[in-house]
């Protein structure tokens, strides 16, 4: 296609939007609504996953060593554990540190009665994971390591967090699929109406010798533009609303602000902007091209 023809096609694509302005507006509004819901949903999911991830980072596996184990072997075990893909961080807690922590947490002033460290054999490694779903694999490995006496783990927390993650994933896929299907259906309707309104013009084009590509392109451009506008509007709306909603939540429920760590808008938009634009343009393109192929036998 020559540049001037592309320019003409682009102009016709825009003109189509204005010619069928009410249907175009309806499509833009629906795609905007779908992508707005998607954006809101994504912001909630991203924040929730961030909270879950923060919680996961707090989940650790503790390993205790056999009695009389040498310091060299403890260091060796530490190196072996650090090399594992499941592991994000390994912290060594000496017997003294373990006793100090226990005293502070549970005994307080009653600890003065102890002259020796009752936890002399309780030096350990606290192992933090990259992903809690990998906990059981790590535990299986640790059970096979010589020199490890006991492994403490929180099976319930790990299973629950893994379950929540999976659930969020399934819900996300389901909702996104529904929103996409609705948007494609609506854009397809708009293009179908556009084609029926311009049937005569299309016939004239055919008689004059327009190629299929020449006839179809403006409709595809129209779909893409509708999709693009439909993506930009909700992005703007979410950008304006995000801070206000978080400020409202934090202001209204002060307790939450200490528990929850909200993501900055920039982090949300780093993913949301390209995804919304690609989805908007994609459904515009898909919706229009399938409709044009179905209804325009030129």
């Amino acid at each position: 296609m020559k540049i001037r023809t592309f320019g003409y096609t682009l102009k016709q694509g825009f003109s189509n939007i204005f010619r069928n302005k009410w249907f175009s507006l309806a499509s833009i509004a629906t795609i905007s609504a779908c992508l707005f819901l998607f954006g809101i949903f994504y912001a909630i999911v991203a924040n929730f996953q961030n909270i879950v991830k923060t919680a996961e980072e707090g989940v650790s596996v503790t390993v205790y060593f056999d009695e009389g184990i040498s310091d060299e072997r403890i260091a060796e075990i530490g190196e072996m554990i650090e090399k594992r893909v499941e592991v994000s961080k390994v912290v060594y807690v000496s017997a003294e540190e373990a006793w100090e922590g226990f005293k502070t947490e549970y005994l307080g002033e009653y600890a003065d009665g102890f002259t020796e460290n009752p936890l002399a054999n309780s030096m350990n490694y606290q192992i933090y994971l990259n992903d809690v779903s990998m906990q059981s694999a790590l535990v299986t490995y640790l059970e096979s390591v010589e020199g490890i006496r006991q492994i403490n783990k929180s099976e319930v927390t790990a299973t629950m967090l893994t379950g929540i993650n999976a659930l969020i994933g399934y819900i996300s896929i389901g909702i996104i699929a529904i929103l996409l299907a609705v948007s494609i259906f609506l854009i397809s309707n708009t293009v179908t109406i556009g084609i029926s309104v311009r049937k005569e013009e299309i016939n004239i084009m055919k008689y004059i010798g327009a190629t299929d590509f020449f006839v179809r392109s403006p409709f595809v451009i129209e779909g893409i533009i509708i999709g693009l506008i439909g993506a930009v509007i909700p992005l703007g709306a979410i950008y304006l609303l995000y801070h206000q909603v978080i400020e409202f939540v934090v202001g209204r429920y002060a307790m939450l602000s200490q528990l929850l760590n909200f993501l900055p808008i920039e982090t949300i938009f780093k993913v949301l902007t390209p995804v919304s634009v690609i989805v908007g343009v994609g459904i515009g393109f898909l919706g229009s091209i399938t409709t044009v192929r179905k209804h325009l036998h030129v």
Binding site: N203, Y207, G209, D212
Partner: peptide
């Protein structure tokens, strides 16, 4: 089918109802 446009470009066609683009 794909050669039809090229063929029609060598034909001029006029109809009873003119078939002009009204806008």
């Amino acid at each position: 089918h794909r050669k039809i446009p090229k063929f029609r470009r060598n034909l001029g066609i006029v109809f009873q109802d003119f078939r002009l683009l009204k806008d």
